[in-house]
Amino acid sequence: MSDDLAARLREQGLRLTPQRELILRAVEDLGHATPDEVLAQVRSQVSSVNASTVYRTLEVLEELGLVRHTHLSDRAPTYHSNREHEHVHAVCRRCRAVTSYEPEVVAPVVERLAADGFAVDVGHLAIFGVCGDCAAKDVGSAT
């Protein structure tokens, strides 16, 4: 990925720094991660990286199309690599587990909105509810 990262940065007149490379690698390794989680991952390797560097770099990486974000909670955005296929996020309100689903799961909704001229950013879509494990615990505790 560093070759792709370096090429995209050069196109924008930017250079590949060790911090940018570490931050992108952290996002890829963590899967879905908030800036604070990325910072913790990066600091486990290089303690001198600060939060503002992580936030700025995540913005640059998103502008370059290498990462994207979605809101999986009411807190900070969650970032993931664009190397992953586009997916919809299902977030459990109880245990906070995030499950990825193929875009086809929401195809009827996307098609309906498209008929009205609205283009859905499926990769930014998060659906909140209760996962099967948490629902099963509720049933088990009610008996």
Rank of each mutant, 00 (worst) to 15 (best):
N82F: 00
D116V: 03
P35W: 02
V67A: 00
L66A: 09
D3R: 00
R10G: 00
I23Y: 08
L113I: 05
R96F: 09
V54M: 12
E63W: 04
Y79S: 05
S48P: 01
V105F: 11
C92V: 01
R93C: 10
S47Y: 11
R56F: 09
N50P: 00
V110S: 03
T57H: 06
E104S: 12
H80K: 11
Q19C: 06
D29P: 06
L14C: 03
L125K: 01
E28K: 10
A126S: 15
P108N: 09
A114D: 10
A90P: 01
A107I: 00
C92K: 03
A7D: 14
F118K: 12
V139K: 15
T34V: 04
H87P: 11
T17N: 05
N82E: 09
G31I: 04
V60T: 11
H124R: 09
H80V: 08
L24V: 07
R56I: 11
H32M: 12
H124N: 01
L16T: 10
V110R: 05
V46C: 03
A142K: 14
A6Y: 02
G65V: 00
Y55R: 15
S48D: 12
H80A: 05
H89A: 10
H71G: 00
L24F: 12
A90C: 03
V110T: 05
D74Q: 14
H87T: 12
V88H: 03
P108G: 09
L16M: 12
A51N: 08
E11I: 06
R20H: 04
I23M: 14
Y79D: 02
E21H: 03
L30Q: 04
V106P: 03
T17L: 12
V91P: 14
T99S: 06
L24E: 11
H87S: 15
P35T: 01
N50A: 02
S44N: 06
D29V: 10
V91W: 10
V120E: 05
T143K: 09
